[in-house]
Computed example of a mutant assay.
Amino acid sequence: MTGPTFLLAVMNGRFIGGGMEVTPGARIDDGVLEVFHVAPLSAVRFLRIFSKVFAGRHTDLPEVDIRTVSSVRIESVTAVGHPVPPGPPSWRSTGPVLHGDGEPLGMLPATVTVEHGQLALLDDGRRP
């Protein structure tokens, strides 16, 4: 995916932002990621289609592209065609910040990868 972007999210689940079902086909246990890309759209168009996202009914819109990947490299180029310099993440950063669940994690460029079966869970042995 290349070109102007309104929103880009790399997903391992279906929901972001308090209930928006941006990738309705995503499963947290399938060993893949979904890349959710929204091309630029006008404010009027955004307002018309925004409610569809909460029900996962936006996936066939021309502005939306969802792809399944095991790894994705995210880069940003400024309007003049120069790469944005890396630096410490901050809400006030002048370059694009990589966020994870709303928290700044680092600056772009970044590579996001999923490794199937790598989440370790602890079980205290008690059953409900």
Rank of each mutant, 00 (worst) to 15 (best):
P96V: 11
V38L: 13
A110S: 12
E75T: 15
D29N: 14
A9Y: 01
S70I: 04
G56K: 13
A120T: 15
V114F: 01
V97F: 01
L33W: 03
P85S: 08
D124V: 12
V38K: 08
S51R: 10
D65N: 15
P96G: 00
S76R: 12
H37R: 15
V80E: 13
G3R: 06
R126A: 14
P104H: 00
A43T: 14
H58L: 01
A26E: 10
P85Y: 04
A43M: 11
V77M: 11
V22Q: 03
I28Y: 13
P86N: 05
R67L: 01
V112D: 04
V84W: 08
F15T: 13
H58V: 07
M107N: 11
E63K: 03
V53C: 09
L8R: 01
T59L: 11
R45A: 06
R57H: 14
E115P: 00
I28P: 12
T68Q: 10
P128M: 01
M107V: 06
H99C: 11
K52D: 14
E63L: 03
V114C: 06
R14V: 09
N12M: 05
R48I: 04
R14W: 01
G56R: 13
A55G: 15
I66T: 12
M1K: 09
G95Q: 00
R48G: 10
P40R: 00
V97S: 01
N12G: 11
G95R: 00
V72N: 07
S42E: 07
H99F: 15
